[in-house]
Structure formats: C-alpha cells, structure tokens
Amino acid sequence: MPLPCISPAPPSGTSGALPRFAARARTRAGMTLVEVMVGFLVLALTVLSALSGIMFAWRVSDSNLRAVTALEIARSVSEQIITLDFETLQLTTLPVDLPSSPSGSMTVGTWNNRSEDIHDTPANTADDLIVGVWPEIEVTEDSSGARCARVVVRIFWEENSFFTRRTREDAVTIVRSPVAAY
C-alpha cells in the first residue's frame, strides 16, 4: 500500500487534502529565518573569538620581536666594545655603532638613539623600533696595579603593543681587562 504523503492522486470521495502527519512533514522540510539567523550569530561569535585570539597572539609576537631585537642590539654593541683596545675604553666617544643605522660612534654616559626597521617596511617609519643605547665604562685598578673595565650597555625601547606605549629597559654587563683572558 503506498504512503499517503506520496500518493499520486487523492482517494475518491476526499477533498484532496493530505493527512495531518504529511502536512507537518512538509513544513519541516526547510529552515526558518530564525534558525538561519541563529546559525549566523553562532558563526559570527566563533569567528570573532578566533580573530581576537589571533590579534592577541600577533601583539605578543610583536612585543617579543621588539624585546629580542633590542637585546640583540645591546649584545652587538657590547661585543664591539670587547674588541676595542683597552686604552680606547677610556675615551668619551667610542668607535662603535649599530650596523643597521650607523652614525660612526657612540658617546659614553649618554643615550644614543637609533631606529631599527624590524618589519622591513622602509616606507613606514611608524612601526620602527626606537632604541636608546647608553654605554657606561668604569675602569678600576686594584692595589697590585691590575686594571679592568666594567662595561654596562643599557638599552631602552618603546613598545606600542596592547593599545598603550610602554618603555622597557634592560642591560648587558661585561668585564674587560687589558690582558686577553683565555
């Protein structure tokens, strides 16, 4: 016996209306506008939460890139100072500079500001890392006449992550003697 909802012709003597359960099955065949809107709302909330997570990760990554680059600059300057002659360390101007933005020298005991294009966007200077390097050199001599120099390379940089501007600071300390130590 065929099902009433797919019967090709209504039985004789009826008005042609489908039975009650068949009419209900037909109304549930598609999705209502409310169901579609709820689906889009769930999808939008999922995309927004994923996007906010991606943006947070990007900001943290940029902050770490700035910190690592600034410390790499401090390490580079301290390594250049180590290679200098011991007598040169007593000058107020050192022939040391950053390879990326050379000006020829650095003054001891003052901030030497440089900018570093960390995102490789020469046309956009707004995303550059602004770095200040402060080399301090203190030469000491003990009672036996042995001399050594304590070199502190202080560095500061600005972060504009997380919607605020913060200045961060760190330092690298080295000790240099006139006699090479192996």
Rank of each mutant, 00 (worst) to 15 (best):
3 L>S: 12
4 P>Q: 10
6 I>E: 14
7 S>G: 01
10 P>M: 10
16 G>R: 13
22 A>I: 11
28 R>Q: 11
30 G>M: 04
35 E>M: 05
36 V>A: 07
36 V>N: 01
37 M>H: 02
39 G>T: 12
46 T>M: 14
47 V>R: 07
47 V>I: 14
50 A>E: 05
54 I>W: 11
59 R>E: 15
60 V>R: 02
63 S>G: 13
63 S>L: 12
64 N>C: 06
66 R>N: 13
69 T>H: 04
71 L>H: 06
73 I>H: 03
79 E>F: 00
83 T>Y: 11
84 L>M: 09
84 L>P: 02
85 D>Q: 13
85 D>F: 10
90 Q>M: 11
90 Q>E: 14
92 T>V: 11
93 T>W: 03
93 T>C: 10
107 T>K: 07
108 V>I: 08
116 E>M: 05
118 I>Q: 08
119 H>E: 13
120 D>P: 02
123 A>W: 05
126 A>T: 04
128 D>V: 02
129 L>N: 12
130 I>H: 04
131 V>P: 00
133 V>G: 03
134 W>M: 05
137 I>Y: 02
140 T>S: 15
144 S>H: 01
146 A>V: 12
148 C>L: 15
148 C>H: 12
149 A>Q: 04
156 F>E: 15
160 N>Q: 10
163 F>T: 02
167 T>F: 09
172 V>H: 11
172 V>N: 07
173 T>E: 15
176 R>W: 03
178 P>T: 04
181 A>T: 15
